[in-house]
C-alpha cells in the first residue's frame, strides 16, 4: 500500500511534466499555426476574387505574394467611410478587400456569414468594380449535409451567382435570392435569383437572408461607389 504522500508527489510530478511538454509544443508551434490560419483566409479571398482556378496549383509563397501585390484590405465604418485599422475592437467596423489590377480596383470582396440549417455558414462574396454585379460567392466553413446543403460548395451552385445583379432599376438593394427549385427563364427578375438546391430549401433560405443582411451593412459604401461611377460616366 503506497502512502498518500507518494500519491500526491507522483501525481504532481506527472502533471508538471505533462504540462511542460504540452505547453512547449503549443508554444513552439503557435507561429506556424497562425501562418496557416492567415494563409487559409488569404486563399479564400483570392479565390472569391477570381483566382480560384489558379490557386489550386500555387505554392504558399506564391499565394502570399499575389495577395500582397493585388489585394488591399480596407476598413470602413457603418456609414461607408474609410477609416484606419481600428486598434480598439469595440468600435463597429467592417472589412472590405479590394482587388487591384493595373493600378485600379477591379473587384470587391466582403465576408458573409449567417445561419444555415445545421449551423453558421461562413464565406466571402465578391462584386465587380461597378459595385452592383456579382463576381463570385464561396463558403469556407459550414456544417451543412453533404449532398444536400453541402452542395453550396459545388461549382454548379456557385457559378449561378456569377453576373447576377444586386440593384434593381430604382437603385434599391435587392441582393440575390436562392429560390426553391429553378429560376424561370421568363422571369423578369431572373437576374436577381439563382436556382435552389433540391432537398436544401432551408439552407437556401438562410443564404438569401444573411446575404441580404450583410450586403445592407456594406450598402452605404457601395452606393457611394455606384454614384461616383455614374458621375464619372456622364
Amino acid at each position: 500500500m503506497r502512502s498518500d504522500t507518494y500519491t500526491i508527489i507522483f501525481t504532481s510530478v506527472v502533471t508538471i511534466v505533462l504540462g511542460l511538454v504540452i505547453s512547449f509544443t503549443a508554444d513552439s508551434l503557435r507561429d506556424r499555426q497562425e501562418i496557416n490560419e492567415a494563409l487559409d483566409i488569404k486563399k479564400n479571398i483570392l479565390s472569391v476574387l477570381g483566382y480560384n482556378q489558379a490557386i489550386s496549383v500555387w505554392t504558399d509563397d506564391k499565394i502570399q505574394s499575389v495577395y500582397e501585390k493585388n489585394i488591399k484590405e480596407i476598413f470602413i465604418d457603418a456609414n461607408g467611410r474609410e477609416i484606419e485599422k481600428p486598434i480598439d475592437s469595440s468600435l463597429d467596423y467592417l472589412k472590405i478587400y479590394h482587388k487591384i489590377e493595373n493600378g485600379s480596383v477591379s473587384g470587391y470582396a466582403i465576408p458573409i456569414s449567417g445561419k444555415g440549417l445545421w449551423g453558421t455558414m461562413f464565406g466571402y462574396f465578391s462584386l465587380e468594380s461597378d459595385a452592383e454585379t456579382v463576381k463570385r460567392i464561396t463558403f469556407y466553413k459550414h456544417k451543412e449535409t453533404p449532398g444536400l446543403g453541402g452542395e453550396v460548395d459545388k461549382d454548379w451552385f456557385k457559378n449561378n451567382f456569377i453576373g447576377k445583379k444586386l440593384i434593381d432599376e430604382f437603385g434599391n438593394l435587392v441582393s440575390v435570392e436562392v429560390v426553391k427549385g429553378y429560376v424561370s427563364s421568363t422571369d423578369p427578375y431572373a437576374k436577381h435569383k439563382v436556382d435552389g438546391i433540391s432537398g436544401a430549401t432551408i439552407t437556401g433560405r438562410g443564404i438569401t437572408t444573411f446575404l441580404k443582411e450583410d450586403l445592407k451593412k456594406y450598402n452605404p459604401y457601395f452606393a457611394k461607389i455606384r454614384k461616383l461611377n455614374e458621375i464619372g460616366s456622364l
Binding site: R2, Y6, T7, F10, T11, V14, T15, L18, V21, I22, T25, A26, L29, Q33, N36
Partner: peptide, 25 residues
Amino acid sequence: PNKVRIIIQMSVVASLVIIIDQILM
C-alpha cells in the same frame, strides 16, 4: 498509485492527443 490510476492514464492520453493536434494544426 492505484487510486489515481485512471486519471493518470487519461492525462497521458489527453496530453498525447493535444500534442498531435497541435502538430496537425
